[in-house]
C-alpha cells in the first residue's frame, strides 16, 4: 500500500529522517514506535503531504504522492492535537468536513457511541480536551477509507472511550483496512498491533511482530524491550 524510498527530512540542521525505507502492505495494524523526537510524526506527515521531504519518494498505491492532493481522499487522519475553530458548533464542523470530502460518511453511529449528542450544538471552543478528542475521532472514522493514520489517538480519553476506540480500530481492521498508529502506550500496542515499526535516529531500527521484538531483545515485556533498545543506543 505504501512504499517509502530513501526518505530524507531535515529541519534546519536537525536530521529527522535519514534515508528511510519502509514498505507497508495492505491490511493490519502497524504501530509506529520510537522515543520522543525520533521522527514518527514527521514520517506520518510526509505520507500525508504535510511535510515535504528533502529527498526520496513516497508511493501510495504505486503512485508518487509528492505535490499531489487527491489521494488524501483515501486516507483518514487523526492529528495529535485536536483544536478546531472556536466559533463553529460540533455539528457544523462535521458537516464542513463531510462537505470537503467527496464520499459517504457515517457519523451517526460514532456520535452515539461516544455519547456526543448533548454537545452537537455547542461551540467547539467550549468543549473540554477529552470531548474535543472524541470529536476528532468521529471526524477520522466517519469515512470509509483504505488507510487510517492515528497520531496519539488516546490523548485525553477516559477509559470507556478508550475501550470504544479499540473496538472501532478492531472493526476497521476486520474490514481489511490498513491502520498506522503512533502511541507511547505499550499495553495498547501489545493488545492491537500486528506489526511494530521502530524508529530510531531517523531510520527503521526494527520491523516485525511484538513477539519477534521480545525475542530480539531477550525481554518478556514489551515496555522493557522498547526501553532496552532506547537505552542501548544511549550507552
Amino acid at each position: 500500500m505504501i512504499q517509502i524510498k530513501n526518505l530524507h527530512k531535515r529541519f534546519g540542521k536537525l536530521v529527522v529522517l535519514d534515508s528511510l525505507d519502509l514498505e507497508i502492505k495492505t491490511g493490519g495494524i502497524f504501530a509506529i514506535l520510537g522515543p520522543n523526537g525520533s521522527g514518527k510524526t514527521t514520517l506520518i506527515k510526509s505520507i500525508l503531504g504535510m511535510v515535504i521531504p528533502n529527498k526520496g519518494d513516497i508511493k501510495f498505491k504505486q503512485k508518487s504522492v509528492l505535490q499531489q492532493w487527491g489521494y488524501r481522499n483515501q486516507i483518514n487522519y487523526l492529528p495529535q492535537i485536536a483544536n478546531f475553530p472556536a466559533n463553529l458548533t460540533v455539528n457544523e464542523l462535521i458537516e464542513m468536513v463531510k462537505n470537503l470530502r467527496p464520499k459517504q460518511a457515517g457519523e451517526q453511529e460514532l456520535i452515539s457511541l461516544f455519547g456526543l449528542e448533548p454537545f452537537l450544538n455547542k461551540k467547539l471552543g467550549n468543549l473540554s480536551g477529552g470531548t474535543k478528542q472524541k470529536v476528532n475521532i468521529v471526524l477520522t472514522f466517519m469515512f470509509d477509507s483504505e488507510l487510517i493514520i492515528l497520531d496519539e489517538p488516546t490523548t485525553g480519553l477516559d477509559p470507556i472511550s478508550l475501550i470504544s476506540l479499540k473496538m472501532i480500530i478492531q472493526k476497521e481492521k476486520e474490514k481489511g483496512k490498513t491502520i498506522l498508529i503512533t502511541t507511547h502506550i505499550m499495553s495498547l500496542v501489545e493488545e492491537i498491533a500486528d506489526k511494530i515499526v521502530f524508529l530510531l535516529d531517523g531510520n527503521i531500527y526494527f520491523k516485525g511482530s511484538v513477539s519477534e521484538l521480545k525475542e530480539k531483545t531477550g525481554q518478556d515485556d514489551l515496555e522493557h524491550a522498547i526501553a532496552k533498545i532506547i537505552s542501548r543506543k544511549d550507552v
Binding site: L48, G49, M50, W69, G70, Y71, R72, N73, I75, Y77, P79, I81, A82, N83, F84, P85, V97, L100, R101, P102, L139
Partner: peptide
C-alpha cells in the same frame, strides 16, 4: 489561532 485546524484541513483532499 487556526494552525491546528489548518492541519486538519491539510489532511483532507484539498489543494494547499
Amino acid at each position: 489561532n487556526s494552525k491546528e485546524f489548518t492541519e486538519l484541513l491539510l489532511a483532507q483532499p484539498i489543494k494547499r
